[in-house]
C-alpha cells in the first residue's frame, strides 16, 4: 500500500514537472551610449576633432529611434512598434526594454534614426514637451526633427555654433547593426554606442566650414549626414 502511494506521488510529480511550461520569450534591454572615436562623449567640452579637422564640442544630441527589428539566424525577425525619443543628456531616455522577444539565436538588429513616413507627420506622436520641441515646422515639410546634434567649433579664433539637424522623409537613416545574442527566456542587455564622428565621415567628409554648420533647410548637407549616419552605431 505504502509503495503504491509513493508510486502515485512520483507519477503526479513527474506529470506536474512535465507540464511546467518553458518560457518561450525573454527580455532584451538596449542601452544607448555615446563616444567620439572610442572615447566616451563628454558634453560642453571643446576637445574633439572630426575628419575634416574641425575642433568641436557637443552641447545637444536628441533623436528618435524607430522600427527596431530583431533578426534571427534563420532569417525570421521580430519587429517592434516603439518610437523612442532619445536625449543623450537624459539617462532615462537612453534605455529601451523589450519584453517578449521570442527565444532564439539572433544575429542583428535593424532600426531607423528618425521616423518613417507613415508616422512622420505633425502631431502624430503624443503631445509631450519633448515631442513638441522636436516638431519640424509645417512650412518646411512638417513631421518631426529626426535628430538635433549641436555644439561649437573653432574657426579662425572664434567659436561659432553648429546645428546639424535632419528631418523630412528623405532623411530617414537606416541602421543595420550586427550583434550575436541568444534569447532563452532570460534577460539580455545590449549596448549600442554611437560614435559622434561617424556623422561627419564615411563615406563623405563633412566640414562645418564648407558644408555649413547648419543643415536644416539644406537638403544637400542633410543628405550627406544621412549617408554618413548608417554606421554611427557600428564603429
Amino acid at each position: 500500500m505504502k509503495t503504491k502511494a509513493l508510486l502515485i506521488l512520483i507519477i503526479a510529480a513527474s506529470v506536474f514537472a512535465g507540464c511546467k511550461k518553458e518560457k518561450d520569450s525573454g527580455t532584451v534591454t538596449i542601452n544607448l551610449k555615446y563616444s567620439v572615436d572610442g572615447v566616451l562623449l563628454e558634453f560642453d567640452t571643446m576637445k574633439y576633432n572630426n575628419q575634416a579637422g574641425n575642433h568641436y564640442s557637443v552641447t545637444r544630441l536628441e533623436y528618435y529611434l524607430s522600427n527596431i527589428t530583431f533578426y534571427k539566424s534563420d532569417g525570421s525577425f521580430f519587429k517592434t512598434d516603439l518610437i523612442q525619443y532619445v536625449n543623450a543628456r537624459t539617462s532615462s531616455t537612453n534605455q529601451m526594454v523589450f519584453n517578449d522577444i521570442p527565444n532564439g539565436n539572433y544575429t542583428g538588429i535593424t532600426f531607423n534614426i528618425g521616423i518613417d513616413s507613415a508616422h512622420n507627420y505633425t502631431y502624430s506622436l503624443p503631445t509631450t514637451t519633448e515631442n513638441n520641441n522636436m516638431l519640424w515646422p509645417e512650412p518646411m515639410g512638417g513631421g518631426y526633427h529626426f535628430m538635433k546634434l549641436e555644439g561649437y567649433f573653432e574657426d579662425a579664433g572664434s567659436t561659432p555654433g553648429f546645428a546639424t539637424h535632419i528631418g523630412t522623409n528623405h532623411c530617414l537613416v537606416n541602421i543595420n547593426h550586427p550583434e550575436n545574442f541568444s534569447v532563452k527566456g532570460n534577460d539580455n542587455n545590449l549596448t549600442l554606442t554611437m560614435n559622434i564622428n561617424e556623422w561627419y565621415k564615411n563615406p563623405e567628409t563633412y566640414d562645418f566650414n564648407t558644408d555649413g554648420g547648419y543643415s536644416m533647410g539644406n537638403m544637400m548637407a542633410m543628405m550627406k549626414i544621412v549617408r554618413n549616419g548608417s554606421d554611427v552605431f557600428n564603429q
Binding site: T129, N132, N133, L135, P137
Partner: peptide
C-alpha cells in the same frame, strides 16, 4: 517657422516655448 527667421527652435509648438 523657417530658417529665414528661425524663431521656432525655441518658440515652437502650442506653448511657444521649449521650456
Amino acid at each position: 517657422f523657417t530658417e529665414k527667421g528661425d524663431c521656432f527652435h525655441c518658440h515652437g509648438g502650442d506653448l511657444t516655448t521649449d521650456n
